[in-house]
Design a protein around this nucleic acid. Structure first.
Lengths: 343, 343
DNA sequence: GCATCTCGTCCGCTCGGGTTC
DNA sequence: GGAACCCGAGCGGACGAGATG
């Protein structure tokens, strides 16, 4: 019943030695095409596949890549994970997924385990703490690591979307529509990408000679259920004396909440206020008012990251290579932005 | 630089034998607490963790569970995957994720590899084909498999939400609101769960003496971008002579598209038409009109599935055990349903 | 000499019998 | 006679030197 079939069984049935079966599965040249075919045919019939643990031990690599993310709440992340997984599969690599919940201890535990030979390389959306960055810098000499965000002082390769360019595209779009009062709406947390987008915002506003600078900071984290109520309070309450005519939200989730907040106050989007997001998650297209946003092709992100990782893994002097790849985002104009209505 | 530290290094530094280091990492009793602590302290300092491949080979198990899903598009799936991953982590198990894209060949390839010792157990949302089911039935004798859906003739354990009860709750809710014309809106595919919900629908309608039976079948698959346009055509076009006053959508995604379709035709939800979904994905709460739906707690699903898998793995006669666990869903009434307005 | 195959060693660890105090 | 530890075999496969034709 539970007999696990091994390389010896296949060898015996095929009438060859263990080594030959091994060669059949390892794309080595010193094996007759007919023999290989025969071995593979028999293996397939018996659902045999070389034991990955034994293989990993003998080869010194696991043929497995690690994916470490804080959560899968923002739809952008599952899209990315899915694309990473499928790209890895193309190289014959399996994917080990771990969720850190943004907990540094958890991340550390996972990284130690993964770097002990469980995976050959690592794609990570890291926690943003000095300890976390220090640890990644250390690990990177043992294990190729690709960060899916970038931070100051992070010394490993990264693949990410160009935050600054994305923000610039949005601000330019809004400014060109004639908006003079554009606010940025983001979580409070000191995330690198928030900082980047804010800087790009201000730069762009300056280049349009717009002096209005408002940065609304949300207390609740990104996926909180009543985020829109907080936004309502923060942005659309009567307390705001000089309200913006356009809002650039840090991401689509926040933009969608802003949309709901505006509508719940009787405001029409985009007539009364324009709203733009970032990420182009699938729901942004089918919101009540389809969202203007910046598209970051998560498919391409995953593919690029895996391609880079595989290139690094094949490279002899992998430790000297650090690549930073910035993917260009694209402006997607939908219905949630328009010229401000003069009243 | 790239020196991989091994059990022997730790043993040497700690002044003990390899076996003792091993015992420290394996919760075995025959080791002095002080010795264990010392070994673990040294290991931690050097970021040492026993090589999982070597461990897997020696132990005959990988301490890894496999998660196989068609995709991560419907937000329900990432939620489930995330919860599975975190629950597995609690047992010290890593999670190997694979995306099949609903491709049977891909699923087969993945299953063969995983069952070759890559994972100790498997959670899967399987492709619905006879070959797929046959393969799972075969594999189940080699590897504990838990299906996250149930089908006829599937002979392995399953953990899932009670489709029929969920559908019943929705129909009862709508009927009690006074609806007499309730339509079911689902994809065309012959999925088991669609069939289940349809049957439960009809049963419930019958028990309320409602003769109106309309089943709208969508051609596009669940996550298509212009699904709402298809719904508009199918349900809200003038062609429909006897339109329903309430729609029960197969899942929240479809319900949200239906919402958009209705609104794009100038219909008010719920005044002109009630709409209900299934799954309670996070967006259903913050849609323009918050969605009445059936909540299936994905956290609990993941946890239950892993608990069951671990129980099976520990059980001596695992091959004789087949468990089917049905989780009870819960009705969530929001704003998208109300009594029909008499005109 | 070349294509193809066999054989023995080793990968890093776990496990349990044997040993020590 | 335990508690705590050492030691050697073996897990399944990769690999390369040597054998065979």
């Amino acid at each position: 019943m539970n007999v696990r079939i091994s390389i010896d069984d296949i060898a015996k049935i095929a009438g060859v030695s263990r080594g030959t079966v091994s060669r059949a599965f390892n794309e080595r040249s010193d094996i007759n095409a007919k023999t290989r075919e025969k071995v593979l045919r028999i293996s397939k019939k018996l659902n045999y596949f070389p034991n990955p643990s034994a293989r990993g031990l003998a080869k010194g690599r696991s043929e497995c890549i690690g994916i470490v993310v804080p959560d899968l709440k923002n739809p952008f992340l599952p899209e990315m994970v899915s694309s990473i997984g499928k790209s890895a599969e193309k190289y014959g690599m399996s994917s080990l997924l771990s969720i850190t919940d943004n907990n540094i201890m958890m991340q550390e535990k996972i990284l130690v385990k993964m770097s002990s030979g469980q995976v050959d390389g690592l794609l990570i959306t890291p926690c943003e703490s000095p300890e976390s960055i220090a640890m990644l810098n250390t690990m990177n000499s043992k294990l190729p690591i690709i960060s899916l965000k970038h931070f100051e002082r992070l010394q490993c390769s990264s693949v990410m979307f160009d935050d600054m360019l994305g923000a610039k595209l949005i601000i330019e779009h809004l400014a060109e529509l004639g908006h003079k009062k554009i606010a940025f709406l983001s979580p409070t947390s000191p995330e690198w990408s928030i900082k980047q987008r804010l800087v790009a915002c201000n730069d762009a506003l300056q280049s349009f000679n717009i002096g209005y600078r408002k940065h609304y900071k949300l207390q609740n984290s990104g996926s909180s259920h009543n985020l829109w109520e907080e936004i309502k309070e923060l942005v659309f309450s009567g307390a705001e004396k000089n309200p913006p005519t356009a809002i650039f939200a840090y991401d689509d989730i926040i933009a969608l909440h802003a949309l709901k907040a505006a509508e719940s106050c009787g405001l029409k989007v985009p007539d009364d206020i324009s709203i733009a997001g970032f990420d182009n998650i699938s729901f942004s297209e089918m919101a009540g008012v389809p969202l203007t946003t910046v598209a970051v092709n998560s498919e391409r992100l995953g593919e690029t990251a895996i391609d880079l990782l595989m290139r690094i893994l094949k490279s002899a002097n992998r430790h000297e290579e650090i690549h930073h790849i910035m993917l260009k985002p694209e402006l997607i104009v939908r219905k949630s932005t328009s010229s401000p209505v003069i009243k």
